[in-house]
Design a protein around this nucleic acid. Structure first.
Lengths: 106, 106
DNA sequence: TTGACATATACCTATATGGGAATATAAAAT
DNA sequence: ATTTTATATTCCCATATAGGTATATGTCAA
């Protein structure tokens, strides 16, 4: 079985560095594709493809404006990733947690 | 160009659901491979392979104990993911942020 | 309608899977 | 030394890329 599709969930979509860049770039304002191309120095078809993946998992939203399409990051979709990583917070914050953990392991 | 290797960074390693399960399972105590196999209902070779990926990106640590190998999650390696997702926090917490953002977009 | 601009899709290619089965390696037990 | 137990690795296969190039679709302008 091959790896899961990038369109299967936000975790997979975000695994690609360029897509993370795009999400950062679109977090503050909505922007047309051409600005992403110019801003990040990527090929236009490449950007469109990444946007498609991001759109499929709900990480970005679009609206038409004239002949442009304005994309922006939908932060809500990143939240589950945040929540998941956050469940490990206690394990890196308190050294105590680790020491305790090792004691329990015996 | 194919997708980046799962061993390239934590983002890629964590994109696989089973690996996330393993990380959760090994967060509290260290455990031998056999317990992961039994606990998550996966094939042993599959678990070994996932552990290899996780080890390569520093998401888990190992130590020998008799003929067992005890694995445990290295939460520190998850922290960068947490930090990255956290940068989007203001965009989902305050509705204000969004309204402001839309105003700026014009 | 025709042309120019903005995005999206199609097609091709090299590559990295992840699972399953079989086998290899390592270390304790007898 | 041999056997048993615990993990790791190898091989094979179907599949999903991500980039590049060319082309299609969509929308406004003249």
């Amino acid at each position: 079985m091959p790896r899961a599709a990038t369109t299967s969930d936000a975790f997979n979509a975000v695994a690609e560095p360029r897509r993370r860049q795009i999400l950062e770039f679109l977090a503050t304002h909505e922007r047309p594709v051409s600005e992403i191309v110019a801003g990040l120095g990527l090929e236009q078809p490449s950007v469109s493809k990444h946007l498609r993946v991001l759109r499929n998992v709900g990480l970005v939203r679009v609206r038409r404006h004239g002949r442009h399409k304005l994309y922006h990051t939908n932060a809500e979709a990143i939240r589950p990733l945040y929540e998941w990583t956050r469940t490990f917070e206690r394990y890196w914050t308190h050294q105590l947690g680790r020491i305790k953990e090792r004691a329990e392991a015996r």
